[in-house]
């Protein structure tokens, strides 16, 4: 039986991790490889690196740090942010990333999903989908575009479930559903939207945004049947540590890799 995955997400700007990360009593800000190694040693099942500068500035991801991570890391990792074309994805995958995650560029040009799947295989193609967790139009939600740029964030005009089905048909290999308003607020994952997406597709589904307590992780696995849960601040602050979180989940009967 597949283990439910736990995925720390690290924000990268100009080749360094930009938010402080606390391990035991030690605070590390900066070195991507050191942080990646520590999370891997702590039992992270996968890592996501989000290049927060590449996307808004219209730049391609700098592949030097991707190569450094690939040299050291023996768990899978995904690169998000700044991937707008097959050539962008190729550079990141050739540098050693296992997957690329694409969000707004896929909304702007959905054929990009087909192109990426045809060129690299669906297993490499993750589609990030942002939704407003507080909005509720009787079970129908709109996908938010350009959420990485507060000034440019806008309604994409697309319905959440319709978009998920469309990218699945186009060859996506995984969906990361990110609740943007609860992101950082730590009020729990967007359960209603996640459960609806779970019912709409058999693609691997990753919950993102809103994790504040171990119970939030248990709840999203138990109630929404997601394959993985992604979080940033609770892991980086040291408030939730992966070994303890995995023991907590295992005690609740959730299958995790110890």
């Amino acid at each position: 039986m597949l283990a439910r995955r736990l995925i720390p997400c690290l924000d990268v700007a100009d080749g360094v991790v930009v938010k402080g990360v606390r391990f035991r009593d030690h605070r590390v800000v900066g070195d991507i490889v050191e942080l990646a190694r520590r999370y891997a040693a702590d039992g992270a099942d996968e890592l996501v690196f989000y290049d927060i500068t590449a996307s808004p500035e219209g730049r391609r991801v700098d592949t030097a740090w991707v190569e450094r991570v690939a040299r050291e890391l023996d768990i899978p990792f995904c690169v998000a942010g700044g991937i707008r074309s097959v050539a962008d994805a190729e550079a990141v995958l050739a540098a050693g990333a296992d997957k690329v995650s694409v969000n707004s560029p896929a909304l702007a040009r959905p054929a990009l999903v087909d192109e990426l799947a045809a060129r690299f295989g669906s297993q490499c193609v993750v589609i990030g989908v942002d939704v407003d967790a507080q909005a509720d139009d009787h079970g129908s939600w709109r996908v938010v575009a350009n959420s990485g740029k507060p000034d440019a964030a806008s309604d994409s005009g697309r319905d959440l479930l319709g978009w998920v089905r469309e990218v699945a048909d186009r060859g996506a290999g995984e969906i990361v559903l990110n609740a943007i308003r609860s992101d950082g607020v730590r009020g729990g994952y967007a359960l209603a939207q996640l459960a609806a997406v779970r019912a709409a597709t058999t693609l691997p589904l990753v919950a993102s945004g809103g994790a504040g307590t171990p119970a939030h992780f248990a709840e999203v696995f138990e109630r929404c049947g997601v394959d993985a849960a992604l979080a940033a601040s609770v892991f980086h602050s040291g408030e939730i540590r992966l070994p303890e979180l995995k023991r907590f989940l295992a005690a609740r009967g959730i299958v995790v890799r110890p």
């Binding site: 039986m1 597949l2 283990a3 995955r5 099942d45 297993q123 290999g173 995984e174 058999t202 394959d227």
Partner: peptide, 13 residues
């Protein structure tokens, strides 16, 4: 098979 999910992606024993 399509169920429980396809492709098979993740950690397994």
């Amino acid at each position: 098979p399509a169920a429980p999910s396809w492709p098979h992606m993740g950690w397994n024993r």
